[in-house]
Design a protein around this nucleic acid. Structure first.
Lengths: 191, 191
DNA sequence: CAAAAGAGTTGAACAAGTTCAACTAGCGAA
DNA sequence: TTCGCTAGTTGAACTTGTTCAACTCTTTTG
């Protein structure tokens, strides 16, 4: 059952009773997405947070020049959120698109706020999750400054082989912040 | 009094009574740093989190090639933390150095954990802070991918004029992820 | 199945940013 | 005051990554 994955995920971060875990799960509703379908488009309001239980999503921005910049990929066991739009109900800059047929557990804004109130441990859960997230974004920025595109490419495919194997080179290039033509040249060059 | 700044900072994020604010402040001890002094050096364990009440710090890493990469500057009203080293007591990759004579309110690891337990609202406070932090790191990475060094330079000095005015060009270059020689050329070129 | 759209490759010309070395200017400490 | 250190500047050669256009190969779709 898809809720099991969410429960496992939560248990990795905080201690909660079975009852409490079920209570949390009650707030989440499963939803399916077909390949290429959008869970969120820029310009709209983000009314939910999602936990991926099957498949994979790409979260990206589109700048004025039409360049797609991928913030992250969300495979099974990852969260999908536009924190800023969700919390402040401002229009979103992000797009979330299914890379393959996917399943997500969704919680909407009102329920998330209610959940924080109902179970204070959920504050701790998300405090820890955001804390971890912050660290990995910091590290990613440092890698962007210190490493060449080639080094970043190999770091990515070695760190996330399962995700990388689902992606086109164009999508990987968008994540690394380079043009796909250049990624093609990187792959051709000796290791 | 330096604690007032911390109280104001907290009140911007969560609702707490005067008593509770004082209770939080009790966990923090003031400490002074002379210009160029280090609050943390890479290789050591980070045993504290700090809130800057006066002055300014630079938080940076040093890679194998000897390049300094600045993660962020922490002026008055900013936090100084190495989240990873602090939480998991692993050796730190970060250096925190005072750019001028500075004052910090410090809380150590045991007290931070105790504070989370004593006042559950503190979980919420840090959940919100980390959440905001995560958003700004995401945005910074996107800027790094989409903007040129020149655009990033102007974005920085326009967004943080007060901090920028305290910094040398070398330090700004380290933050932008470019060599200082190139920053010199950017500044010389027409706007 | 056929047509069209998208993914990947390649080369040539170009732009962005680095490296190194040499120089100038200013500041801090003794 | 003087010495030495660090910051900043500049130019030339170089490396990294982009752009554009042309082409091939798959995949999707009607």
């Amino acid at each position: 059952m898809s809720y099991d994955l969410l429960k496992q995920h939560i248990k990795k971060n905080v201690n909660l009773s079975v009852t409490e875990l079920n209570q949390i799960c009650d707030y989440f509703k499963p939803l399916s997405f077909k390949k290429k379908e959008f869970l969120l488009s820029q310009g709209s309001l983000c009314r939910f947070e999602g936990f991926v239980t099957e498949g994979c999503f790409r979260v990206f921005t589109l700048d004025k020049k039409g360049n797609e910049n991928t913030l992250y990929f969300a495979a099974k066991d990852w969260w999908l959120m536009d924190i800023d739009s969700f919390m402040h109900q401002t229009t979103s800059d992000l797009n979330m698109q299914a890379l393959e047929d996917s399943e997500v557990l969704l919680i909407n804004r009102e329920d998330k706020i209610a959940l924080y109130e109902a179970l204070p441990t959920v504050e701790k859960l998300f405090r820890i999750m955001f804390q971890k997230g912050l660290v990995s974004w910091q590290r990613r920025l440092v890698r962007n400054h210190c490493l060449t595109a080639k080094e970043r490419y190999f770091h990515f495919i070695e760190t996330y082989p399962d995700i990388a194997s689902k992606l086109t080179d164009k999508q990987i290039a968008g994540y690394l912040g380079i043009r796909h033509e250049f990624l093609s040249k990187i792959k051709k060059s000796e290791n």
